[in-house]
Computed example of a mutant assay.
Amino acid sequence: MLKLVEQKSSQNLYDYYRENLVGKVPYYHQVSKKSWENSFFEDTDYDGDKKYGELITYCNLTVGGTVNGFIQFGCSNYGYDEAGEKSFEHSAGMIRQIHFLHNQKAVGEELLATAFRYFQEMELDVSYAFFHALGMTCTGNHGKLHESMSEVAELLLDNGCHVEHTNVYYAKKLDSAKEITAFSLSMKSAEKTENQTQMFTFYEGEQAVGQANVAYLPENAIAYLRWIFMLDEHQNKGFGTEALQLLFAFLSHEGMTELHTDTADNNMRAQHVYEKNGFEHLGITRSYMFS
């Protein structure tokens, strides 16, 4: 039975999330039902902008009401231009997520067909699945599909999509972070925003040499490193490692136990720095495109 989930408080979907997704991939975190609902149905980004102009949820139910699988799709409220900047002139069709129980590919096919009909009705030339920045807030906005979900990847590839972009996912335990006393860099932090992000600026003496931005995930002692950079003229000086170590100490002092992040699979420099500084490689994640 295929049923449109119209309620904003579906206990069955929340149960599916907790029982079949939390723990299977590193960025599906255990959160309260209220936080999950806000993230799942009415999500906004860290700028406060609503992510989707329309977001529709279908699920496949047993006779007893148990969820066999679900799909979310619709039109994004914005997209990204050629420079990678957010643009409200670049909305697109999106399959935000599709999941189904193991060995239930027929359920996945049925769910995916509903999204394709929607895209045809909307006359969308290009659409995406598991678009990175339009994921749920409680995942740190990491919306890509983890490699452990091979049955979902197979379904997408079998139905005319191709891999758009690939990332490497990392996490770092912070319980052993130490105070820093003898580094070339110092760090200043801005006030945490109402959207739970915080900016950090790194200095050599009085000169700013780089910045980082961290998001704090709801109801978890987990932070997500959204980005970090050193200015071009200050690269290859070991400052990236020093900046990370300063962040580790600060976040540990603030009660965070883990720092998560991701980077493009071809960004070998970033991967080297993360792994050198104790981040654990937790798998490959991918976004997909239909055209």
Rank of each mutant, 00 (worst) to 15 (best):
V163F: 03
Q211D: 15
L259F: 03
N236V: 04
Q207M: 13
K178P: 00
M230P: 06
Q211G: 13
H260E: 15
A212N: 07
A182N: 15
A223F: 01
M230Y: 06
A171K: 08
N277S: 05
E151F: 02
M268Y: 12
V209P: 06
Q245K: 15
A153V: 01
K172S: 08
S148C: 09
E194C: 05
Q196E: 10
T201C: 08
V273M: 13
S186I: 02
M199F: 04
E194V: 07
N159A: 04
G238C: 00
G240P: 10
L259K: 07
A177H: 15
S184C: 03
T201Q: 13
Y203Q: 09
A177C: 06
A243I: 07
W227I: 01
T263M: 07
V214Q: 01
L244R: 12
K178M: 14
E242Y: 02
F248Q: 06
W227E: 12
N266I: 02
S252I: 01
C161W: 09
L259A: 04
F279N: 06
Q271Y: 00
D265V: 11
G278P: 08
G160C: 14
E254G: 02
S148K: 10
R269Q: 13
A223R: 05
T193Q: 04
M268S: 03
M268A: 05
E179L: 08
